[in-house]
Simulated assay, not measured.
Amino acid sequence: METLRLEATQYTPEIVLDPAGVIAFSGKSYPENTFDFYQPVMDWLEQYFSSELPERTVVNMEIIYFNSSSSKLFFDMFDLMEEASAEHALEVNWIYDPENESAREAGEDFIEDFDSLTLNLVEKG
C-alpha cells in the first residue's frame, strides 16, 4: 500500500495516510464537495483496514474548523475506525487549541458518539 498525501488548501486539510500506521489530518475542512474530496481518503482507509495492519494505528486529527458536511464525513470515518478497532489497536487523538472551544466541543461530541473507539482529547500545548 502506498502513502496517500493531500496538501492543504484554503478549504481542505493536509492529510497524510501512512500504511505504517500513522494517519494525520490538520487544518480546515470545508471543501465545495466534501464527499468527492474525501472519497480517495475513505477508499484508502477501507483498503488499509482490510489489509494486514501494523501492530498499532494512531490517528491525529487537528481540524481547526469544519462545516456540517465534513462533520458527517468524519462521523462515517470514525464509524469505519470503530469497527476496525474491535480487532486492531487503534487510537484517535482529537487535537485542539485551548482557545478554540468549538473544536474541543466537537471532539467531546465524537467521544460520546463512539464509546468503543479510543478517542482522546488532546489540548495543543
Rank of each mutant, 00 (worst) to 15 (best):
S102T: 04
P31V: 13
E123C: 13
N60A: 04
W94A: 01
A24Q: 14
I95V: 14
Y11G: 05
A20Q: 14
S102Q: 11
G107T: 04
E32P: 01
I63V: 15
E52V: 05
A24D: 07
I23N: 04
A24E: 13
Y48P: 07
L119T: 07
E55K: 02
R5M: 08
V92E: 07
F35L: 09
E123P: 05
N33C: 01
F114M: 12
E108T: 01
I111L: 02
Y48F: 15
V122Q: 05
A84V: 03
V59A: 05
L117M: 08
I95T: 05
D97I: 00
A86L: 09
Y96W: 04
F74L: 15
L17Q: 13
T3Y: 02
A8G: 06
D79M: 06
Y11A: 15
K72S: 14
D36T: 14
S70T: 09
D109Y: 08
A106C: 01
L6R: 14
I15N: 12
L90M: 09
F114A: 03
D18L: 06
L17V: 12
D18I: 06
V122M: 09
Y96C: 10
G21W: 00
L45N: 03
H88N: 08
A84S: 10
I23V: 15
T57Q: 01
N100L: 03
L117N: 05
E14A: 15
A86K: 14
T34H: 09
L117P: 03
E87Y: 12
L73Q: 11
E52W: 01
I23D: 09
D79W: 05
E123T: 06
R5F: 10
D76A: 13
S102W: 10
E105S: 05
T12F: 15
F66P: 05
A86G: 03
Y30E: 11
D43G: 06
L53W: 00
A20Y: 02
N93H: 12
F75P: 08
D43H: 11
R104W: 10
P19K: 04
S70E: 06
L73F: 14
F78K: 02
L117Y: 00
E62M: 09
F78L: 14
N60G: 00
M61T: 12
D115W: 00
V58K: 08
G107N: 08
A89F: 11
E46S: 06
E46T: 09
P19H: 11
I23P: 01
Y96R: 10
F35G: 00
M81Y: 07
E87P: 00
E46W: 01
P13V: 06
E83P: 00
V16M: 02
F110V: 02
D43F: 06
N33F: 10
I63H: 00
E2I: 06
D43P: 07
Q39D: 13
S69N: 11
D109A: 07
Y48H: 14
P98H: 10
V92F: 02
E46K: 15
L4T: 13
D97T: 01
